[in-house]
C-alpha cells in the first residue's frame, strides 16, 4: 500500500458534502470551468508539479454495490471525490498548495463538511490526511518521468522529427542552422532524466536494514 509510484504521488480525497450543497458545488464547478472565471484556478493549472487534478461529485446512492451480499449502506452525506497525481509527496509539497493557491482550494472545497480553510496549514493538512484514501495499488508506466518530463519529451520528439525531415537534400551549413534553431527551441526541455529521489520513508527503512546487514553503523 503506497501512494507513490515512480516520480508521482497519488492523492485520492473523499470529502463529505451535504445534499443541498451538491447543486451549489456543481454550479461552482461549472462556473470555474468557464473561461471567464478560470482565473481563480490559474495557480492550480500552472503549478507545474501537478500532473492533473479532477473533481467528481459522488451521490450517496452512487457508491458501487458490487455483490448482493454487500450490506446496503444508508449514507448521511454525498461526497466529493478529488483525484490528482503530482510530483514528490503530499508532505513535501503541502506548503506549495496551502499558501500558493488558497483561494482556488477554498472555492472548490468550501462547501464540504468540516473544511477548515487552506490557511493556516496544519488544520488543512490534517483535513486532507484524515479524508485521504490510501492507494492499495498504484501503477506508473514511466517511473522515471514526472509530468514536466513527459511534456518536455513531447517537445523533443516534435523537434527531432522536424529536424530529421529532408535530410537527403539539405546542405551541411543549412543543417547546422536548423540544428542550432532546434536546440535553441528545446533548451528548456532537454535535461537528463533519471530515477526519482527518495520520497518514501519505507525506502529508508529498507536501506537501513541492508546497511545493518552489511555491518555499517
Amino acid at each position: 500500500m503506497s501512494n507513490i509510484a515512480g516520480k508521482a504521488y497519488s492523492m485520492n480525497l473523499m470529502t463529505p458534502i451535504t445534499r443541498k450543497m451538491i447543486l451549489i458545488n456543481k454550479l461552482i464547478f461549472w462556473i470555474a470551468g468557464t473561461p471567464y472565471f478560470s482565473g481563480a484556478l490559474n495557480g492550480l493549472r500552472t503549478l507545474s508539479l501537478i500532473h492533473y487534478a479532477r473533481w467528481v461529485v459522488v451521490g450517496r446512492k452512487q457508491f458501487p454495490h458490487v455483490s448482493p451480499d454487500q450490506p446496503e449502506e444508508d449514507l448521511e452525506y454525498n461526497y466529493m471525490f478529488f483525484n490528482s497525481n503530482f510530483n514528490g509527496s503530499w508532505t513535501q509539497y503541502v506548503d506549495s498548495f496551502s499558501m500558493a493557491i488558497p483561494s482556488g482550494l477554498n472555492l472548490l472545497w468550501k462547501k464540504n463538511v468540516g473544511w477548515p480553510d487552506a490557511v493556516p496549514e496544519t488544520p488543512f493538512n490534517r483535513y486532507v490526511i484524515n479524508n485521504q484514501i490510501w492507494s492499495s495499488h498504484y501503477y506508473c508506466a514511466y517511473p522515471m518521468a514526472a509530468s514536466n518530463d513527459v511534456k518536455a519529451g513531447q517537445s523533443i520528439k516534435g523537434g527531432v522529427e522536424e529536424l530529421s525531415k529532408g535530410l537527403d537534400s539539405i546542405s551541411a551549413a543549412d543543417f547546422r542552422k536548423k540544428y542550432d534553431a532546434t536546440t535553441k527551441k528545446l533548451e528548456n526541455d532537454i535535461s537528463m532524466m533519471a530515477p526519482t529521489p527518495v520520497v518514501s520513508l519505507a525506502n529508508l527503512a529498507i536501506e537501513k536494514r541492508e546497511r545493518i546487514e552489511e555491518g555499517k553503523k
Partner: peptide
C-alpha cells in the same frame, strides 16, 4: 528537491 533534483525547475534530474 532543489539541489539534487530539478523537477521544480523543469530540469528533470
Amino acid at each position: 528537491q532543489w539541489m539534487n533534483y530539478g523537477s521544480d525547475f523543469k530540469l528533470a534530474n
